[in-house]
């Protein structure tokens, strides 16, 4: 059986090693996406995390990938998996970013407040829970896992989706969602072990 082909967006700044290893172990063939032509023949496009959103958008524009990415995922319906900054790329950006994201989610990311009482960025392991009001899928009600977070910005407001995961750090935020062909996780699924494998299996089943 041929393995589905996952393309990892390579804009020079992101963590390439960990997502690549996760996809290899999850039964995907992988290749790097560095130009507009690389989207052909892909079964999944992955936008890895560990970078500033502004810097990520800037590099995607500089490499002339942003428009082709939008056309591939929004026009052709190519499945998309966004990790951390890859999730934020689907929004309208944040108050502090100079550039706009893809706008698939018509919301802005907000920065966690940082002062003596509130610690930000959100770094470490925290609980991810499934919001039953936004679940069109058969997923166990006890769906509650630990996941690894490393971020300063998050989407605060819950929105209509096929699946919506939430986490609390001072306030509740969207830690992951699935809408149409878009899977996006604020936590690092490549380091979150059990939950990471579970989500990757769900994606693979849908391809």
């Amino acid at each position: 059986m041929t393995k589905p082909l996952a393309g990892i967006l390579d804009v020079g700044v992101s963590n390439m090693g960990a997502p690549r290893r996760m996809l290899d172990l999850g039964g995907f063939a992988t290749r790097l996406v560095t130009n507009a032509n690389d989207f052909k023949k892909l079964d999944l496009v992955v936008c890895p995390g560990v970078s500033g959103l502004d810097y990520l958008i800037c590099e995607l524009k500089r490499l002339k990938i942003l428009d082709s990415l939008f056309e591939a995922v929004s026009g052709r319906g190519l499945p998309y998996l966004g990790i951390c900054a890859g999730l934020q790329l689907l929004t309208l950006g944040s108050e502090e970013t100079k550039r706009e994201g893809l706008g698939i989610i018509p919301l802005k990311c907000e920065k966690f407040p940082s002062n003596k009482e509130r610690i930000s960025p959100h770094i470490g392991w925290n609980t991810v829970t499934l919001n039953p009001s936004f679940s069109l899928r058969e997923v166990s009600n006890n769906w509650k896992y630990k996941a690894y977070f490393l971020h300063s910005y998050a989407i605060k407001t819950a929105f209509e989706s096929d699946l919506l995961f939430q986490t609390t750090n001072e306030y509740e935020f969207v830690s992951g969602f699935k809408i149409r062909n878009f899977w996006a996780m604020q936590f690092h699924i490549e380091k979150s072990q059990i939950i990471g494998n579970e989500i990757l299996t769900m994606i693979r089943t849908e391809l």
Partner: peptide, 9 residues
């Protein structure tokens, strides 16, 4: 560095 990879990293 923070501008490139984000302050969280």
């Amino acid at each position: 560095i923070s501008r490139a990879i984000g302050s969280q990293s």
